[in-house]
Amino acid sequence: MNSRKTTKRVTMMDVAKAAGCSQATVSVVLNSVTDIKISPELRERVLNVASSLGYGMGSPIRRAGLEDLRGGCIGFIVDQLATTPEAVNAIEGARHASWENDVTILVAQTQGRAEHERKALARLLQAGAQGIVYMSIFTRRVSLDHAFDTLPVPLVLLNCYTDDDRFPAVVPDEMTGGRMATSSLIKKGHRRIGTIVGESFMEAAQDRLAGYRGALAEAGLPYDGRLVVEGSWTPTSGFEATQKLLSIEEPPTAIFCQNDKMAMGCFTAIGEAGLRIPDDLSVVGYDDDELSRHLRPQLTTLELPHRPMGAWAIGQLANKTTSSPHRIHKVGCTLIERASSGRPAVRKP
């Protein structure tokens, strides 16, 4: 009988729980990401907690693990680069996780076409790529081309996953994100909270809506289908959906827009109705798009964790994990409180 004691590996989630912050914040701190603003006090607290818990030796993002890749390169295959900043943020997170070890990142855009993926894969391997990160611009299940079946280097999936869980995969924790956005409004006293969802076939829209419903249930608030309007991720759809929400008999006191572009349209509709944000109506977005800081008032939103996801992917390549199946790794979103959300106005009877 083996009497050796098995020690549970400390995870980023353990550090986040003990430090009282999100897993995304822990990832940013431990990866020394400098272009995301985190207070010195919070940064020090995370580092102290990580040290006290013994986090590090088994960390998938520990820089020392990248020494085997030193002087080499990693290939990124992504379907789209130009439509949204998520792909660029993920690549930037990967760069931060690898630059000290002189690892070059080569990027190929394929528009999701199998023939382009095969050519990109062949050329990345020819260039000496020691690992491949395969990324989808929106979270989804993917069916990989057969060219990925017998790769001579590790493969990690970013923002996507396969049915058979053959490869390490990382996605945002969208359900928890939707719950956080809704709960932030409930904590401010809102009881009639509308939500504008994205296209319902997308997993992000489904999970954010599930999080919204979960937050209502946890607070003992009834689900009202009239408060849920489908949009298409665009400002125009946010504008039109907000008009619908404002026209119902008992309109909401707050609206959770499931991306920032729809929130921009929501702002316009609220203004045209002669209402003020947040005095008459609170608004929360999602994504932390650049526009969220230029709206007036600035938009409370959730930051998608693509930078820490990119860093996690690089760490998995360094680990060269070959055992399967792999559990999908979910990274939490961060709520960014700004001026667009407040307590509900007292309405006259």
Rank of each mutant, 00 (worst) to 15 (best):
R343H: 10
W99I: 13
G315I: 02
I77L: 07
R62Y: 07
T34I: 04
A205K: 08
H306D: 02
D35C: 01
F138H: 14
L155K: 06
P297C: 09
Q316P: 02
L121Q: 05
A24T: 08
T268Y: 01
P172E: 07
G178T: 03
R327S: 13
E117W: 09
Q298N: 09
I38D: 02
A217S: 14
P251H: 07
R192C: 03
V228F: 15
H306E: 07
I77H: 05
P85Y: 08
D102E: 15
A82M: 10
L275N: 04
T176Q: 15
I105W: 00
G332T: 10
D79N: 15
C73M: 02
C21L: 01
G65F: 02
G72D: 00
C257D: 08
C160S: 14
G342R: 13
R43C: 05
H326S: 09
A122W: 00
M180Q: 13
K5V: 14
E100Y: 11
P172T: 07
I105P: 00
V197I: 12
G56D: 05
I255K: 03
L246E: 05
T195E: 05
R43I: 00
V15W: 04
D68G: 15
L144H: 13
K330T: 14
M175Q: 15
T334N: 13
E272I: 03
V28L: 15
M57R: 12
A345H: 09
I38V: 14
Q109A: 05
F167I: 00
E115M: 05
L291G: 10
L121P: 03
R191T: 07
V346I: 13
T334C: 08
V228W: 14
L221M: 12
R45M: 01
T11D: 06
T7L: 02
T334V: 10
N48M: 12
V142H: 13
L246R: 09
G225K: 15
A16M: 10
D102L: 01
G131E: 02
R307D: 01
S98Y: 01
M202F: 13
G220N: 12
I255C: 06
G71T: 03
P222Q: 07
G271H: 10
S340N: 09
M202Y: 14
V133K: 06
G72M: 00
P297E: 04
D145E: 10
P325H: 12
